[in-house]
Amino acid sequence: MTAELRLGINVGYWQRHPEDQTETVLAAERLGYDAVFTAEAYGSDAFTPLTWYAARTSRIRLGTAVVQMSARTPAATAMHALTLDALSGGRVILGLGASGPQVVEGWYGQPFPRPLARTREYLDIVRQVWRREAPVTNDGPHYPLPHPGGAGLGKPLKSIVHPLRPEIPVYLGAEGPKNIALAAELTQGWLPLFVDPRQIEPLFGESLRGRPDGFDIAATVTTIVTDDLAAALEFAKIPLAFYIGGMGARDRNFHLDLIGRLGYAEEAARVQELFLKGDRAAAVKAVPDDLADAISLLGPLGRIRERLQLWRDSPVTTLLVAGVKDEPTLRALRDLVKG
């Protein structure tokens, strides 16, 4: 059970068209929200909007949920993070994720196998860069430094810049038990997606058992404040259908696997089938109402107040509100959580 939930916002990644959410971020900062998180898939990147918001704010922390590891070498990600951390006065949270084989191999042209081992190497290199204790080296198979081939002239290097903080907080986006356990072992936080607060302990309690004090479980929660619960449910189903059906290969989709663990394996398979056939409207309708409701905060403020207790009773420590853009609603949600 969480003594006091922190509040943040997740503005995600751009959908179809560029979207500047500066006004939403400024409102969140004024209202005392702890953090703003950006994301990336295969369109807009996470760091550029975050830097844009950093330049317009002074207090709110700046997180990525998540930066895809295959998009950048570990050294490049470390450079991005240390640069933004310095310019923002030490406000960065680096959220990392392995993504899935469809994006990693189809978009970035990188191999996907052994994501856990790759994540360990990636984290080690990033932290070597920030700590500047010695020139950066890695003898692992995924990110060898110096590169063992090429011109044969590579040598270990140390960052020219002394980072503002030698230990920038790192969170992992993770859906499977082994990856969640890795987050608890090696990082300062877990970024769950599509999580039912009632099932975190039964499904992932063992994975989280070794987490350190202060470990942050920052859950992104689709939030729609409206008197029309049916309409809210339909809207909340759209990203579920997309991730179950389209954000993964037919035979390897971690989002589909997660929904199966939540108790909806048969329904998830049907959603994927419809989505891959091109009937996206039917795929959305096939998402169970109970699933969409369980992982979201939907309906009138009174109903959301009641359902917030499920999150307070869970191990979640930060709620990342997704889908809310206007200041009055952000204020009302803050008052519900903090009141």
Rank of each mutant, 00 (worst) to 15 (best):
I93C: 05
G339T: 10
P113M: 06
V287K: 02
D290F: 00
Q199R: 12
Q110C: 04
D227T: 11
R131Q: 15
L145H: 08
A322T: 00
P115R: 05
Q68S: 10
L191Q: 05
L62Y: 08
R334S: 15
L310V: 07
G8R: 06
L87A: 13
A294N: 03
P74S: 09
D213N: 09
S44L: 02
V136T: 12
T226E: 07
L240H: 09
A283V: 03
Q110P: 07
S58T: 14
A231N: 08
L153K: 15
F204H: 15
A241R: 01
V92Q: 03
K237S: 04
K155G: 12
A35M: 10
A269Q: 14
W311V: 06
V67C: 15
L333E: 09
F235H: 14
G12F: 10
I259K: 06
R118E: 01
V25I: 13
E185Y: 04
I125Y: 03
V170S: 12
T24R: 11
V321W: 01
L310F: 10
D227N: 14
E19Y: 11
L274W: 09
F235Y: 05
D34S: 13
W190F: 04
S99E: 07
H162K: 14
A75K: 08
R56W: 03
W130D: 15
V103D: 04
G97M: 09
Q309N: 14
P192E: 06
P192F: 02
A294E: 02
A183F: 01
A39P: 01
A230S: 09
V271H: 12
E23S: 15
K155R: 15
L94P: 09
P166T: 07
V66N: 12
R331H: 08
V321I: 14
G97L: 06
T317G: 05
P146C: 06
R91L: 04
N138V: 07
L297T: 04
P288E: 01
D124P: 00
L96Y: 02
G245W: 05
E266N: 11
T38M: 05
A241C: 04
A27H: 08
T137P: 11
G154H: 14
Q102M: 13
R307T: 01
D196P: 08
D216Q: 10
G63F: 03
T64S: 10
F37D: 12
N253T: 04
R305Y: 07
E40N: 04
L208E: 07
T220K: 03
M247N: 05
V161L: 13
L310C: 00
R114M: 07
K158I: 15
E29N: 02
P169R: 14
L308M: 12
R209T: 07
L298S: 00
P328C: 08
V195M: 15
D216G: 08
A28S: 09
G323A: 06
L94W: 01
T223L: 06
E4K: 11
G299T: 05
P49Q: 04
